[in-house]
Amino acid sequence: MGMEMDMYGRLITIFLGFFAITNPIPNTAVFAGLTRKVDKAERYRIAVKSTLIAFGVVVFFSLLGKTLFHLLGITLPALRITGGILVFIIGYQMLQGYNSTSHSEDDGDTDIAVSPIAVPILVGPGTIATAMNYSASEGSMGAIMTISMYALLGLITFFCFIFSARVVAIIGGNGLKIITQLMGLILAVIGIQLLIAGIYEVVTMTGDL
């Protein structure tokens, strides 16, 4: 029973971490703005393509996180400390009402489903760091839980995109601001938690030497 509760708690933590850093509701407003000149069929195609690409990026880094660690000589505590700092900065910016630099809007001739919607709006540096942190800490089970929770979030994001005009109308400007700041607070706390965990592991490793 205790193990099941721990697993459910872990799943909730992973989901909330992704939800906060991906911030699907404000991103829905961005999606609505970027696709305001296209028809319904094209908007559906963009929603499908962008969420699938974002999911693929998260799966890649979740499965190959440990391999990248070994190839680049990166330790898990180092990733947790760096990821914690990055996530905290993004959360702090959201609390202050600024858009994160990892969620900027870029204009260009490329397919907007790829850029800027999939990358970096849905999957920025913070999302990648979060996926690698969660998946690398508990072996294959960690990767499965990480991918599953991001898949659930991707599904939610997809439906938000499909009904983006209605979602934006219901939430309103003030609602988007409140949600963004709430997600920023959650991110800041998660960032500090990752930072503490990383520092603790470094201290523990040093003490064992």
Rank of each mutant, 00 (worst) to 15 (best):
K49P: 08
V30N: 00
L52K: 15
G56I: 06
A47H: 03
F61C: 00
V203A: 13
F88Y: 04
Q181I: 15
K37P: 12
T157M: 10
S102D: 06
P24F: 04
I192P: 03
F69E: 00
R10Q: 10
E105W: 02
K37S: 09
K40D: 08
G175L: 15
T75Y: 02
I46D: 03
A47M: 10
G84C: 06
H70S: 07
Q96T: 07
L153Y: 04
A143K: 00
T101W: 09
F19E: 01
I156G: 13
F60Y: 07
G142K: 04
T75H: 09
R10H: 12
T206L: 15
F161H: 02
L185Q: 03
I144V: 15
R80G: 09
M94A: 10
I89T: 08
E42S: 08
I170P: 06
I25W: 03
I156N: 02
V123W: 00
I53S: 05
S135I: 13
I81S: 03
V203H: 11
I81Y: 07
I147L: 05
V38F: 07
M145I: 07
L76W: 12
A197E: 06
M145H: 02
I144M: 14
I112L: 12
T127F: 09
P77G: 04
M183T: 01
I144W: 06
I128Q: 00
V114F: 02
M149V: 06
I199P: 01
A29V: 10
F159Y: 14
I144D: 09
L182I: 13
V114D: 01
K66P: 00
I121M: 11
D106Q: 07
V58W: 03
G154D: 09
S50R: 01
L153N: 02
M7V: 06
V203C: 13
G83C: 05
F163D: 04
D208I: 12
V202L: 11
Y134S: 15
G126Y: 01
L182H: 10
K177M: 15
N174C: 11
T67P: 12
L155W: 07
V114G: 00
A143D: 04
R80Y: 10
V168K: 10
N27S: 14
G84F: 04
L86K: 07
N23L: 04
